[in-house]
Design a binder for these strands. Sequence first.
DNA 1: CAAAGTATTTGACCTATGTCACATAATCCT
DNA 2: AGGATTATGTGACATAGGTCAAATACTTTG
Lengths: 196, 196
Amino acid sequence: MAIEEQPFKQLQHYLNSITPIAHKDFKKSRAYFKPTTLQKGEIWIDFHTVCREIAFINRGLLKTSYYDEKGREITSCFCTSNSMASSFKSFLTQRPSQLVIQALEETSLLTIRREKLHELFRKIPIWERLFRIIMEKEYEKLWDYTEGMKTELAKERYQKLLDEQPEVIQKAPVQDIATYLGITRETLSRIRKKTP
Amino acid sequence: MAIEEQPFKQLQHYLNSITPIAHKDFKKSRAYFKPTTLQKGEIWIDFHTVCREIAFINRGLLKTSYYDEKGREITSCFCTSNSMASSFKSFLTQRPSQLVIQALEETSLLTIRREKLHELFRKIPIWERLFRIIMEKEYEKLWDYTEGMKTELAKERYQKLLDEQPEVIQKAPVQDIATYLGITRETLSRIRKKTP
DNA sequence: CAAAGTATTTGACCTATGTCACATAATCCT
DNA sequence: AGGATTATGTGACATAGGTCAAATACTTTG
C-alpha cells in the first residue's frame, strides 16, 4: 500500500523534529493513528461536544473558532500541515469544547483517540516526552500570539501571519483572518491593499 | 512550630481545590517545599537565567515581565496569593528565561525545585495529576487573557482585572498594569478617572 | 447559465487609544 | 527634612482601527 505510506513518513519526520524517535518505536506507533479525510466545510470537532481525539495534519487547513459574548464568531487558530490540532482544553479535561474546528479545504489527518494516546504513553515511553513537548509548543505559540496582540499593530500581526502561515492568507476567508488578527474585515481589507 | 504551619495549610487547601489529595500524601509532600520570603523589589527569577523552581504564593504580589523588540518593559502576568508562579516555559524546557519575576511587595512563597517535583511525581503519584491540572489551568488562563485582548475594550479588560485580582489594582504601579492590559499609562489613567 | 446568496472592497465618518509635553504628586536618599 | 528622582495625571492633538452603508465581486445552486 504505497499510497498509505506517505502520511506516516510525514508524521515520523515531524516527530523526529521534536525529539528523536527510534525506528522500531515509530513502527509500533503507526497502528495507533487512523488516516481520515475532511471535506471542505466539514466540521471535525463541534461546539459543546467532548473532543476525544487529536490529529496530525498531513495537508489542508483547519479553522478553530468560538463565539464571544456578543455572539460574534472569532477565529482563535489556523492549523496547517505538519502540526498537531485539537480542541486542546477539551481533549485534556474531557469537558465540552467551546471551540469548533472546521476544514477550510479538503484536509488529510492522522487522528488518535485519547485512550490510544494513553496506551502509547504506557507502551512506548518516548511518547510521554513527545506529547509533553507538543503541549509546551502549544503554550509557547499561544504566548507569542498573545504578546503580539498587545504590542504589535494590526499590520505587523498580518505580516507575521503572512511570513509564518502564508497558506492561511491565500486560502482562508478574509472574515476569518480578520477575527484571528483581532480586527474587522474592513480593516484587513485596507491593510492588504497597502501590503501586496 | 505553629508559625510555620499556616503556609502549608494554605497549600493543602489550594491543592485540594484542584483534586483531592489524601492527608498522608500531603504530609509526605510538605518536606519538598521550602518557605521563602522575597522583599519588595527583589527579583526572584531573572532574565536569561534558567528557572529551576516553581512556587506557591502564600501572600504578596509578583510581576512577570519581559522586554519587547522596541525595548519597552511589558508585564505579562501578575501572580497573587493562592496560585502557582514560575517562568513556566523556562521551567519546563530548562532554557533561559525571557521573563523577569519580581516582587512588588514583600511576598511569602513555598518553592519547590524541579528535581524535587519529579521526585514527587515518582513517589506520590497524585502529583502527576495535580501538576497536569495546574498546567492546564495556566493554559486556560493564558487563553482567556488572549481572547480578552482581541475582543474586549481596554475598559472591559480593566474591569475584569479589578474583579479578578483587585489587589493588583491597589498595589501595582500604573505603568505595569497598563502594559499588562496592552495600553499606555495615560489611557489607563483616563479609564480610572471614569471607573472609581 | 442566470438569479440569488454570500463575501469582499470602498468611502465617509466616528471613537478608542496613542503621543508628546508639561504639571503634579509620591518616593527615595543622604 | 528637603532636594532629587520617579511615578502619575492632564490637556491638545494625532492616528489606528471601528462602524455603517453602499458597491463590487465571487459562489452556489436551480
